[in-house]
Structure formats: structure tokens, C-alpha cells
Design a protein around this nucleic acid. Structure first.
Length: 426
DNA sequence: TCTGGGGTCCTAGGACCC
DNA sequence: TCTGGGGTCCTAGGACCC
């Protein structure tokens, strides 16, 4: 088995650049929801010393000094680019697993070893040609090794974006250059443990005794060692299961104090969760509702959650709103400045094979047909064209997005217009 | 003034059963 | 000094990922 990990470089920033070529060579960053933190950086922004995850207000000076272009997160744009990249990849290999919005594992076992490097370059060029997105590729015998190869391919110019770990000697060389923290699956806690045990490089970890690692870190740690040694513990999953949990939560644009506003926001999230459930063709059996104040602010703090079990599985907006309100009424306490709330549904099961309507009034055909009509209208006319009254129309709590780019590929009004006269003069 | 959001897997411990 | 043994299911929390 041979895996190729294809990873888009600075994905969100690269998406912003595609329709804004003047940004080429300039520092660019993309912010989290509510324009809070840095979640993506172009190479130039990294060189300017901007770190991942820092709150933007802490580095305003840096942004000014380097004239950094700042974008609010434009998920519609990135999601659409992701689909374009993934469908391009799907045409090049017999089998693949979409691992995240900007990464995929490809099965490249069908290629001869001597063809692999060239094939990697073909993949890069094709994705660039079809989508304008640059990618890096790591090829190796396990996912963990492919990840490591990818990391080197990206960070080391000499590989020009493609690195294939042909044999053990080759991969040991690479692993000795890689800090253990960079290994896929090693987080803060594991790194601290490894440091104490004298395991500093990825090679140290490869050569560690898997049984000893297992004693301390369990099977997850043992698999790390095995995968680095070329034993596949994580096979290609080309048929991902339906989601087991679905969540919608947001920080508010401003602190909320009244119950009514909190209810508008939270029932809006309940509606989003219901839509996601229906898109997955799934039903949920229970819901967790949480509210919290701003942990960074001074003043009284309150964090709480409530779990509601449904009488029968459902994906109906009206039902989810109903139960969210019950939970919220129990949770709400006067006198706090709420910063964030959210809905998580769990115990999610596929809709197919379910005899809907047997247990629960809400899943009866009469109700689901109404929902289908609403879904269709909202799909054609835009999100929340039709919504429930309790979700409100005020929306002053909505997140801030001061630097949002156009929805170039998903909204007619935002289509780019090309001026042929101007082009002709060039 | 301002600090993201959405997931998965594994484990330990409690409840319960015979 | 002694206090059974073996199993399943569920859940909360930890760790990690992008």
C-alpha cells in the first residue's frame, strides 16, 4: 500500500488570492469567525512573524507595519474551492479519502515506484491548472509517514512540493530532520511526555519500544510507533461514515444580556443543525445546549449546559427549536453577559431504514413535506429566506465580518466581470 | 472594544447483569 | 485476616486533528 497525502498550501489564503492576483507576493491573513484570531497565513505573513491562532488585536502593529491584507473568513468560498480540488484529485486516482477541507489521502499503489515522483508533479500541476490552488504532496507506506513527508515537502524548497519516501533508509533520513512534535498525532501532552523520555526527533520515536510507549500512552501511542515503522494502522477510508455528532456554535458580535436575544441566536443555531442533519440524511436522538460568558473578560462568569433526550429521532427544525427553548429556559440566568452559545446533537443515526412517524409527531410526512419545501426555497433564494419567527429578524448579535471577500463562485451578484476593452489595450 | 468552530477516537469508571 | 468473578453498556473527559 502506498499513500499520497495532498495538502493545499495556506488554503484559505490561497483561495482569496485566486480572484485577487494583486495579492501575489503580499502578506495575507484570514481571520476566524467574529474577526477574532488568525487562522490562515500566506508565506509572506508567516515571514512577517504573524503566528497561528493569535488574536488579531494583539498584532495590529505588525499588520500595519507589513501592510498585511486581512480577510474575514469566507466559508462559502473555501468550501467551493475544496470541492473543485477534490473532484480534480478524484479523476487522477482510483481511490481516495477526503480528510479535511484542504487535505486528501490518495491510493497511489497502482503506480510503479519509479513513476511516483513524476506522478506527484502531475497531480500538483493539474490541481493548479484546474483550480489555481498550490498543493504539496507526501508519498509513503503509511498515512503517518505520508504526513511527515508532506510536511517536509512543504517546508523545504529543495523538494519543490513533492517528496516520496522510497525506502527505510530514505525515510529514516527524513525522520531524523523532523521534530517529534511535527508527527501527526503528537500534541502538547504527548510531546511533553516524549521530551522527558528523551524522544526528540521523529526518528527517536520510530526507534522507541512500542510496548513501552503503549504502557504510557495506550494504543494510540503504540500506533504512532508502528505507523512510523511502515505498519499500516490507519487504512484508507474511502467511505466515511455519517457524522455521529453535529454542532453549531458561535460567539456573538456583542455580549447578550436579555433572554430574548439569547433565544434568537440559539434557535438560529438549532435551525442550522437541523439543516445539516437533513443534508446528511440523518436523525438525532439527543441535544446538548450550552451557554457561556466571556472567559477573558472581568465580571461574573457563567458556563452551563443541558442535555435533552428526544422522544424519537428527528431532524425537523421545529422540533429542534422546541427542545432548544426548553433547555435554554432552564439555563438562562439574569445578570450575565453571554458571549457564546451552541447546539450539539448526538446519537445520530442514518435516516434510511427508519420508519419515521412511528414514534414522533414531528417526523410525520405532513411535517417533513413542509420542511422539504422550506429547504428548497432557502436553497434557491438564499439561507434563511424562510425561517421561524422565534429566530428573530434583528440579528444584532451576529458575528462581525468587516473584511469579507465576495462570494465569487457561489453568488450571482458576486460574479467577477471582465472588461474586454481594458484587456484589449494590454 | 477585540481572544474560532467543528469534529474523531480512546479510556476509565460507574451501573447493571448473572 | 477475610470481602467472588466475569461480563456489557454507557458516559464524561482527555487528547488530538484541521
Amino acid at each position: 500500500m502506498l499513500f499520497a497525502l495532498v495538502d493545499c498550501n495556506n488554503f484559505y489564503c490561497s483561495c482569496e488570492k485566486v480572484f485577487y492576483p494583486a495579492l501575489e507576493g503580499k502578506p495575507v491573513v484570514v481571520l476566524s469567525n467574529n474577526d477574532g484570531c488568525i487562522i490562515a497565513r500566506s508565506e509572506e505573513a508567516k515571514q512577517a512573524g504573524i503566528k497561528m491562532g493569535v488574536p488579531v488585536f494583539e498584532i495590529e502593529e505588525l499588520i500595519d507595519r507589513h501592510n498585511v491584507h486581512v480577510f474575514s473568513t469566507n466559508y462559502a468560498l473555501y468550501g467551493d474551492f475544496s470541492q473543485r480540488v477534490m473532484s480534480t484529485l478524484a479523476e487522477l486516482v482510483p481511490d481516495m479519502e477526503i480528510y479535511s477541507i484542504d487535505e486528501a489521502f490518495l491510493d497511489v499503489s497502482f503506480k510503479k515506484p519509479e513513476e511516483l515522483e513524476a506522478f506527484g508533479r502531475t497531480i500538483r500541476e493539474t490541481v493548479m491548472k484546474h483550480t489555481g490552488i498550490p498543493v504539496s504532496i507526501g508519498i509513503a507506506a503509511t498515512k503517518t509517514l505520508a504526513k511527515t513527508a508532506n510536511h517536509l515537502a512543504k517546508s523545504n524548497d529543495q523538494y519543490q512540493g513533492v517528496l516520496y519516501l522510497k525506502d527505510d533508509k530514505n525515510s529514516e533520513e527524513m525522520l531524523s530532520e523532523t521534530a517529534v512534535k511535527e508527527v501527526w498525532g503528537v500534541g502538547e501532552k504527548y510531546e511533553a511526555f516524549f521530551k522527558k523520555a528523551g524522544i526528540l526527533s521523529a526518528l527517536d520515536l520510530k526507534q522507541a519500544d512500542p510496548n513501552r510507549i503503549r504502557e504510557h500512552l495506550g494504543i494510540v501511542g503504540q500506533r504512532l510507533v508502528l505507523e512510523l515503522n511502515g505498519t499500516v494502522c490507519y487504512p484508507l477510508n474511502d467511505n466515511p461514515d455519517v457524522k455521529k455528532e453535529i454542532c453549531t456554535s458561535r460567539s456573538f458580535g456583542h455580549p447578550i444580556e436579555t433572554y430574548e436575544e439569547l433565544e434568537q441566536a440559539t434557535t438560529t443555531y438549532a435551525g442550522k443543525v437541523a439543516t445539516k442533519l437533513r443534508r446528511e440524511k440523518s436523525l438525532a436522538n439527543s441535544m446538548l445546549v450550552f451557554v457561556m460568558t466571556n472567559k477573558y473578560a472581568r465580571g461574573p462568569q457563567y458556563v452551563n449546559y443541558k442535555i435533552v433526550k428526544f422522544p424519537g429521532p428527528t431532524n425537523q427544525t421545529a422540533a429542534l427549536i422546541h427542545y432548544a427553548v426548553i433547555a435554554l429556559k432552564a439555563l438562562y440566568k439574569k445578570g450575565f453577559k453571554y458571549k457564546k452559545s451552541g447546539i450539539i446533537v448526538s446519537d445520530v443515526i442514518p435516516q434510511s431504514g427508519q420508519q419515521t412517524g412511528l414514534w414522533d409527531e414531528t417526523q410525520k410526512p405532513k411535517n417533513t413535506r413542509l420542511t422539504e419545501v422550506i429547504d428548497r426555497i432557502n436553497e434557491q433564494e438564499g439561507i434563511d429566506t424562510v425561517k421561524f419567527a422565534i429566530q428573530g429578524t434583528d440579528e444584532s448579535w451576529k458575528m462581525r465580518q468587516h473584511n469579507l471577500s465576495p462570494h465569487y463562485t457561489t453568488r450571482w451578484e458576486d460574479l467577477l466581470i471582465v472588461d474586454l476593452d481594458k484587456l484589449g489595450k494590454k
